[in-house]
Computed example of a mutant assay.
Amino acid sequence: MSENIEDINYKEVIEYSLEPLIVHSQLKIIYINEAAEKFFRASKEEVIERSPLDIFKDTSKPAITKRISGAYSKPAEVIEETIYRMDGTSVDVELYCHPIKIGDTRAIQTYVRDLTEKKHLENIRREMVKKINELALTIVPLLGGIAVLPLSGTIDQDRASLLLELVPVNVQKQNVSKLIIDCSGIYEMDSLVIDSLFKINNVLKLLGVQSFITGLRPQLAADAVKLGISLEDIITFSSVKDALHFSGVDYTITDQR
Score class of each variant (00 low, 15 high):
244 L>Q: 07
173 K>A: 05
251 Y>L: 06
70 G>N: 03
201 N>H: 11
172 Q>D: 14
251 Y>M: 03
95 L>Y: 10
84 Y>I: 05
43 S>D: 14
230 S>L: 08
110 T>L: 14
70 G>D: 04
33 N>M: 00
169 V>K: 15
23 V>A: 10
121 L>P: 08
130 K>D: 04
181 I>F: 15
66 K>T: 08
229 I>K: 01
242 D>F: 00
172 Q>M: 09
83 I>V: 06
232 E>F: 04
201 N>D: 14
76 A>V: 09
35 A>H: 01
226 K>D: 09
94 E>F: 11
11 K>T: 14
11 K>N: 13
17 S>W: 07
133 N>P: 12
39 F>Y: 14
223 D>G: 04
255 D>H: 07
119 K>H: 09
178 K>A: 01
24 H>I: 09
169 V>N: 05
243 A>F: 09
223 D>C: 09
61 K>I: 01
149 L>D: 03
159 R>N: 04
99 P>C: 13
139 I>C: 15
123 N>G: 08
177 S>C: 14
209 V>G: 11
20 P>S: 05
77 E>N: 12
30 I>P: 03
237 F>G: 04
176 V>E: 15
246 F>M: 15
14 I>H: 10
198 F>A: 02
129 V>Y: 05
233 D>E: 03
223 D>S: 00
239 S>A: 02
24 H>V: 15
223 D>K: 03
178 K>N: 01
132 I>A: 04
179 L>F: 05
52 P>D: 01
123 N>P: 12
125 R>S: 00
9 N>D: 15
227 L>T: 12
31 Y>K: 09
16 Y>P: 15
129 V>Q: 06
149 L>Q: 07
114 D>E: 08
133 N>D: 10
131 K>P: 02
217 R>Y: 11
83 I>H: 00
196 S>N: 10
146 I>H: 05
11 K>A: 11
156 D>C: 10
66 K>Y: 13
212 F>E: 04
32 I>W: 09
224 A>W: 14
14 I>S: 00
188 E>Y: 12
86 M>Y: 14
212 F>A: 02
76 A>I: 02
167 V>Q: 00
28 K>F: 03
200 I>K: 11
129 V>T: 12
62 P>I: 02
173 K>G: 00
211 S>K: 12
242 D>Y: 11
108 I>C: 08
196 S>M: 13
223 D>E: 06
256 Q>W: 03
77 E>P: 07
17 S>I: 01
76 A>Q: 02
